[in-house]
């Protein structure tokens, strides 16, 4: 059953099912998100991961960091791997052939933004159209961090990556970030949300809704990456706080494809310059000649916030 979690004291009673001595970087937000997700439920979990930081770092032979059944197949198919397991589970249940029918099982796919926004996209779309009872969590660190920091379609404009480096002729990536949350909501799935690990209460509420939704659920989780965003490992939570307060990652949910609700409104909205200034990947944007990028980006963030508020108000 998904638990009602009111405070961290209760939350902390969960016994870990994601073990340490995985090889994710110190201060990595991926593992914060995974821990928060797993510890938010008492259900048994079947988890799949697509290729990415999480996968390569948590299953390094001869070790596994997972205390739950966990599978990795390829870059693109975390979604279909778990959808297959879910379909089999349903079929066995229907035929009364479950080995232990009393066990309460949830199906979860966790992959990075490269595997979600780009490489695995058609697979996810298929799973959502077929309506599997599964949750898909995207660990969105806006870059292919596992292979050395190449840009993905989640990388925001102006970020310097190894395939969109900033320098004399370029300000970094030229294209804007893809809006995956809206795309997934357009599938009409019962529940789609954006979360951030630093807002654990918001995250836990959304996970509960997601685990109880009974259909395909998509969660986009902001994952601040100390290595590719280039900030000190101890600052992961600080950077994440500024990201949500600058509305670069607004926290909201969309139910049944349309009903949009904003779940966190910053008391003081910060300028995105504060967010950009904390990270090495945006260092060059602080130069005079790139000021127009920051200005345009701020306008986009404001416009998006306005759009979200209007959608919430209109309830459509």
């Amino acid at each position: 059953m998904s638990k009602e979690i009111k405070n961290l004291k209760e939350y902390s009673k969960a016994a870990e099912r994601f073990e340490g001595a995985h090889l994710l970087c110190p201060g990595c937000a991926h593992s914060m998100i995974v821990r928060e997700a797993i510890n938010a439920t008492d259900s048994e979990l079947v988890i799949s991961s697509g290729t990415g930081c999480l996968e390569v770092s948590t299953a390094v032979y001869p070790y596994t960091s997972w205390d739950v059944p966990w599978i990795h197949i390829g870059f693109e198919n975390a979604s279909t791997a778990v959808a297959g397991a879910e379909a089999m589970y349903k079929a066995l249940k229907r035929k009364n052939r479950l080995y232990q029918p009393e066990r309460d099982v949830k199906f979860l796919a966790i992959s990075g933004d490269g595997a979600t926004y780009d490489i695995g996209f058609q697979f996810i779309s298929g799973c959502f159209e077929r309506g599997h009872d599964m949750m898909y969590i995207c660990l969105d660190n806006e870059v292919y961090a596992n292979t050395g920091g190449q840009r993905s379609s989640s990388t925001p404009i102006g970020a310097s990556t190894t395939t969109s480096p900033s320098g004399r002729v370029s300000y970094g990536k030229k294209e804007k970030k893809k809006d995956i949350v809206q795309i997934m909501a357009a599938h009409g799935s019962p529940y789609v949300a954006q979360v951030a690990p630093n807002k654990w209460k918001d995250m836990v509420k959304k996970l509960k809704k997601g685990f109880d939704a009974g259909g395909p659920v998509f969660i986009n989780a902001m994952s601040a990456c100390t290595t590719e965003w280039k900030f000190d490992p101890s600052d992961t939570i600080d950077v994440s706080d500024v990201a949500v307060d600058a509305l670069v990652f607004p926290l909201y949910e969309i139910e049944n494809g349309t009903k949009l609700t904003i779940t966190y409104r910053p008391k003081n909205v910060l300028p995105i310059k504060d967010y950009l200034g904390l990270q090495g990947r945006f260092k060059h944007l602080m130069k005079k000649e790139n000021a127009h990028i920051v200005e345009q980006w701020q306008k986009d963030v404001d416009a998006k916030w306005e759009y979200l508020q209007r959608r919430e108000e209109a309830g459509v």
Partner: peptide, 12 residues
């Protein structure tokens, strides 16, 4: 005993 450290430790 606020458990902020517990929730945010990436290495359990």
């Amino acid at each position: 005993d606020c458990f902020f450290c517990w929730i945010y430790c990436p290495d359990s």
